[in-house]
């Protein structure tokens, strides 16, 4: 192996959690750096130039929102947040600040690795223009021709539905807060109109998902927003 694996910085105060996260990441071929505090994490992020940061929101010295704000002022690397349940407002805060995804504790190692892979892939392809063709489930989206096919047949989407789909595809593998999607698709004056977003996501599921009540690609992150998963 001549190419070293991507470097992941784990900012987490609990040694045992760092241990199994490190084991899992190394099993994936990643190199792992550890930091116990947010201050140390920020420092390491600057000096070691990781490809991804896994950040625990429950650090004793920590305000995750400030961490992400500061990080975003000079780096664009993906941030995966670990947090406890029932702190939706914290999650939204840190996601709106620029974090890319979150996992709720306790989390499965498989899930963690899937998220890490998705974020690392994004990091790589983020700069260059991706392929205009995207496949998921029975659906094929041709961004260059603005065409959506399901099982080979064209699906009619309204302009807003299409904009919403494109916004979700563009952030594939990331959690998008409701606010973020509303601003992107409807514009800044709609950021409080959550029910619009929910209705249109429902429309998309009706048109594109096999079972709209149990979607597999247009996923709900309850209390936070949505995630598109290929």
């Amino acid at each position: 192996m001549s190419i070293p694996g991507p470097l992941v910085l784990v900012v987490e105060d609990e040694m045992q959690i760092r241990r199994f996260v490190r084991a899992a990441l190394e099993g994936e071929g990643c190199r792992v750096a550890e930091a116990e505090t947010m201050a140390q994490g920020l420092l390491d992020a600057g000096t070691r130039k990781p490809d991804l940061i896994i950040l625990d929101l429950g650090l004793p010295d920590g305000d995750g929102v400030r961490f992400v704000h500061e990080l975003r002022s000079w780096a664009n690397l993906p941030v995966l947040v670990l947090s406890a349940r029932s702190t939706e407002s914290d999650k939204i805060g840190v996601l709106d600040a620029g974090a890319d995804d979150y996992l709720t504790k306790p989390f499965a190692v498989g899930e963690l690795l899937a998220r890490v892979r998705a974020l690392l892939r994004r990091g790589k392809t983020g700069s260059e223009a991706g392929s205009p063709l995207i496949h998921f489930g029975e659906v094929e989206v041709d961004l260059s021709r603005r065409q959506v096919l399901r099982l080979g047949k064209p699906v009619h989407l309204t302009p807003i539905e299409y904009r919403l789909l494109v916004a979700m595809l563009a952030n594939s593998g990331k959690v998008m807060t409701q606010r973020h999607l509303l601003r992107e698709v409807w514009g800044p004056s709609f950021v409080e109109s959550n029910h619009y977003l929910r209705i249109y996501v429902g429309h998309l599921r009706q048109k594109l998902e096999q079972d709209p009540t149990q979607p597999r690609h247009l996923l709900t992150e309850t209390g936070v927003g949505y995630r598109f998963q290929i």
């Binding site: 045992q16 959690i17 199994f20 429950g58 504790k105 306790p106 989390f107 499965a108 190692v109």
Partner: peptide, 13 residues
């Protein structure tokens, strides 16, 4: 939750 996360994560590993 912290020990639970550790337990769950280690078992999963």
């Amino acid at each position: 939750r912290t020990p639970l996360t550790v337990m769950y994560g280690l078992a999963d590993t």
